[in-house]
Design a protein around this nucleic acid. Structure first.
Length: 512
DNA sequence: TTCCGACAGTGGGGTCGCAAT
DNA sequence: ATTGCGACCCCACTATCGGAA
């Protein structure tokens, strides 16, 4: 199959607004693909490269290359070139990757260049990613969408399911079962604003502490342990403590779901930054582990000794977990009988926060384990802080925000009377707010370099955020975590905005 | 007819590793 | 030694479509 065919369909998908139309377009192409092209066509149209990331980004791809006049690249040909590109390493590799990328782009037509750039940078912007591709795959093969979704969850890979389905039809789905050693897509949580709201959605529910660490899925098969991240990367080598812990448990074959986090000498959780830095260390793991040891803390079990537990209700899975994992290695939790028992849940949240944790996850006791956010039977609840800050500048947006001032630079009043930038945010804005702020900020503009528009610091915004973190980038030595716009405070002037001093006072655990 | 679940898009801060300077 | 880039951890929120109620 020619790459130009994919590029054209991708454009048509982007142009279609109805999801059903996107699905029909993708399904048509999936039916058309030869078996040998399937391993490439499927991920490409789901907006991903089969190789994963290549080590090439905007910097290299941004260089303009004269496009080819006529399409000649095949799907497999392009894939082979990208595989070669991704394999380059060592001294001189940047220049070599740039050369290979230039060569590929030179062989591509203008439409193919756009498509390839999107794929390589991970921004296809066609309004269809894995979930829509799954629907299309179901439509193309006549398999029930729910069965395809489940197979993808169990395989941890759309590509593997697609190949099997297109080769052997819907019967192939039965081959995908939970297998120890092969990671499955993890179940995720939605957000709720309070434990009362969360408990109100369920009947009886569990309330579990939410640890601010790294999600892990731990597979043990006899003497072999493997540890996977939320995106199914294998990080076994970075977490020797987890392997040791798993080998110490009274079971030979199991799959556990949990979090790794680092506790300090007093048993308080270290900051997310410290835990994430440790888990990110790959070169000298032993030294990193001595400085910042991590502990696994589990909250679910997906399989024990060959028994697949995914479809059991949480109550039964947790009973299995309690048999397998001793209490100190499980998250703290409480069970509430329903909305009438909210005070118990609130008291548990308060104790959890006192222990230094992030918040809680409220879970329906009768819910099975299912990948993604589908179903919403897990709800996280975290405290939200707010501040009044001054808009210092704004950045021109991309995609559907092109032509709008989007990303706001936020400042608090510093002791010397200046405004200290604490971070940026593009979240929380409705289309009406974007239109309004674009107009208002242009009136206040003092400079525009085409990317950042600097403004007179006169507008005050109410900003919600999850917490404070250390920063080497910002002048106060701290930055806001997950800042988002709540509303404009036209009733406030810059001199009414919050100060760095009051911010630091509100977060005594964080120092610049 | 209205409501709500699922999805994609739009980017945020930090840290690590690697190659280039 | 320092800098820049890319990958990957954590993530919130809105618009939109389409099925459920």
């Amino acid at each position: 199959m020619l790459l130009s065919r994919l590029a054209r369909v991708s454009q048509e998908v982007a142009a279609a607004s109805a999801r059903s139309r996107k699905i029909a377009l993708l399904a048509g192409l999936f039916r058309e693909a030869e078996a040998a092209d399937v391993p490439v066509v499927i991920p490409y149209l789901a907006g991903r490269l089969p190789q994963g990331r290549l080590g090439v980004g905007w910097k290299v791809l941004g260089r303009p290359v004269p496009p080819a006049a006529e399409p000649s690249l095949t799907v497999r040909g392009a894939d082979a070139r990208l595989t070669a590109l991704g394999a380059v390493s060592g001294p001189g590799s940047q220049a070599e990757r740039a050369r290979l990328a230039g060569e590929l782009m030179g062989a591509a037509t203008e439409a193919e260049q756009r498509f390839l750039r999107g794929l390589i940078t991970g921004e296809v912007r066609q309004g269809a990613l894995d979930a829509v591709a799954v629907e299309a795959l179901a439509e193309a093969t006549g398999a029930p969408p729910a069965d395809v979704r489940r197979a993808v969850m169990l395989a941890g890979s759309l590509q593997a399911v697609a190949e099997a389905l297109l080769a052997d039809g819907p019967a192939a789905l039965d081959r995908f079962r939970l297998t120890v050693g092969r990671p499955v897509l993890p179940m995720l949580a939605h957000s709720a604003s309070s434990v009362a709201e969360a408990a109100g959605r369920f009947g009886a529910c569990a309330v579990e502490e939410k640890l601010d660490g790294i999600r892990v899925q731990v597979h043990r098969d006899g003497g072999t342990v493997r540890v996977y991240t939320r995106t199914l990367d294998d990080i076994t080598g970075r977490l020797p403590e987890v392997a040791t812990a798993a080998l110490g448990l009274p079971g030979e074959r199991f799959v556990l779901d949990g979090e790794v986090i680092s506790f300090d000498g007093t048993g308080r959780p270290r900051s997310f930054q410290e835990t994430a830095g440790r888990v990110g260390s790959r070169v000298d793991v032993a030294t990193a582990a001595r400085a910042v040891p991590v502990s696994p803390v589990f909250f679910d079990v997906l399989c024990v000794d060959g028994r697949d537990l995914l479809d059991l209700p949480l109550t039964e899975r947790y009973a299995e977990l309690a048999r397998l994992v001793p209490e100190p290695m499980r998250v703290r939790r409480t069970v509430v009988s329903g909305p009438g028992d909210v005070p118990t849940a609130e008291a548990f949240l308060a104790r959890t926060l006192e222990r230094g944790h992030e918040g809680v996850v409220v879970k329906a006791l009768d819910a099975a384990y299912s990948a993604g956010r589908r179903g919403a039977s897990w709800l996280k609840v975290k405290p939200v802080h707010t501040l009044d800050l001054v808009v210092l500048a704004a950045e021109w947006g991309h995609g559907r925000r092109t032509g709008r001032l989007s990303n706001l630079h936020l400042g608090a009043r510093a002791a010397d009377g200046s405004l200290a930038m604490l971070g940026k945010t593009f979240k929380g804005m409705t289309d009406a707010m974007l239109a309004w702020q674009t107009e208002r900020l242009r009136e206040l503009a003092v400079a525009d370099d085409g990317h950042v528009v600097t403004v007179r610091p006169e507008l005050v915004v109410e900003i919600a955020y999850d917490g404070l973190q250390r920063s080497t980038r910002y002048p106060a030595g701290v930055a806001l975590r997950f800042a988002r716009l709540v509303r404009y405070r036209e009733d406030k002037r810059p001199e009414d905005a919050d100060t760095v001093q009051t911010l630091l006072a509100a977060h005594p655990g964080v120092r610049p």
